Simulated scan of single mutants.
Amino acid sequence: MQPVTKLERRVMTAAEQALSRQRHVSPLDVLTGLGWIPAGRVTDWRQARAPHLEAVAAVSADRLADALEIFHRWVGSRDLRPGEVEYLAATRDRRPLRFTATGEPGRERAYRTHWMPADLPEPHRERLTARQSKPPDLVVVQALTSFTCTGCGRTDAGLLMMEDAGPHCLDCVDLGHLVFLPAGDAALTRRARKASRLSAVVVRFSGTRRRNERQGLLVEEAAVEQAERECLSDEEARARRRERDRERRAVADERFQAELAEHIGRLFPGCPPRRAAEISLHTGTRGSGRVGRSAAGRALDPDAVTRAVIASIRHADTAYDELLMAGVPREEARQRIRADIDRVLHRWRS
């Protein structure tokens, strides 16, 4: 029996995680799970700013083929059923997206095929396939600087849509009649989008986070008016539901933080219980973005829990913060206090 290679382990792990998380798995899930195709570059490809998926990959086409061969061997060892999914671009023409430079039909079909458990009920399977084949949202960008429309030549500083030839103003892409609905009211946004025959997501690039962030929607004015009437009619009921949801989340958070503190105590029996509780409260706060709220943290993965403990030690038990305030670069500051962290970890593990 041949030993399992490192790449085989990584591919199988990415496939298992995707299947467990969403009840289906595709080649794209595996390649993004490997980190070979960053999420931001997938967005570029989906918005037709790249000729094919291979063009945005961090590895060669041969390396991608190796991973997909391993993936299909893994599929053959599982009780999975295939379903072919349409991949359409987030452009007005909804053109089919290409995966490979050659466009060879067999390889393209292999990329489009998603795999689902054989025991999945047929209605569930059909819903999954329909949802995966749904065309992506049209995307409109809030310009950070003025731009010249490729269609009409007019200089503008408002909203634009990127197409093959370059930036286009909304009038040139037939979206000029839509109105902007800012993000913030989930019910209003959901209802306006449902009522609007045409809509587009508005994003703006964040220089600090290095990514596009959603700002709101473009929808028909009549759809906004209809959504506002619907929201006014059931405002009290939605307020009561929000309060019930808030209470339920608070109970779930408290339970999770208690489990996390208990897990810290098992991994680090020398850690004072009060400190373990403080760490779990800090890292397990909903919406904090800290390691305790990551998928691994919520699963109480030992590595994730250890990272949370190390982060606490770094700030509370070393001179790390003082070094940063003194202008020491972050990596150098971490190197200086590494021995201090190791000493505390050794004591807590005892």
Rank of each mutant, 00 (worst) to 15 (best):
R246G: 04
E247T: 05
E247Y: 11
R248I: 08
R248N: 04
R249T: 01
A250F: 06
A250T: 04
V251N: 01
V251S: 08
V251K: 10
A252H: 03
A252G: 08
D253R: 15
D253E: 15
D253L: 11
E254Y: 02
E254Q: 13
R255V: 14
R255L: 09
F256D: 10
F256Y: 10
F256T: 00
Q257A: 01
Q257C: 00
Q257D: 01
Q257F: 01
Q257T: 12
Q257I: 03
A258I: 09
A258H: 12
E259N: 10
E259I: 02
E259P: 11
A261R: 00
E262F: 05
H263M: 14
H263P: 01
G265C: 08
L267N: 11
L267V: 01
F268E: 02
P269M: 06
P269N: 00
G270S: 01
G270R: 06
C271T: 08
C271Y: 02
C271R: 00
P272K: 11
P273T: 07
R274H: 13
R275H: 12
R275C: 09
R275Y: 04
E278N: 04
S280P: 07
L281P: 00
H282R: 15
T283W: 07
T285E: 14
T285P: 12
G287A: 04
S288P: 11
S288A: 15
S288V: 14
S288M: 11
S288Q: 09
G289H: 01
G289E: 05
R290C: 10
R290V: 09
V291Y: 04
V291M: 13
G292A: 10
G292L: 10
S294C: 03
A296Y: 12
G297M: 07
G297E: 11
R298G: 09
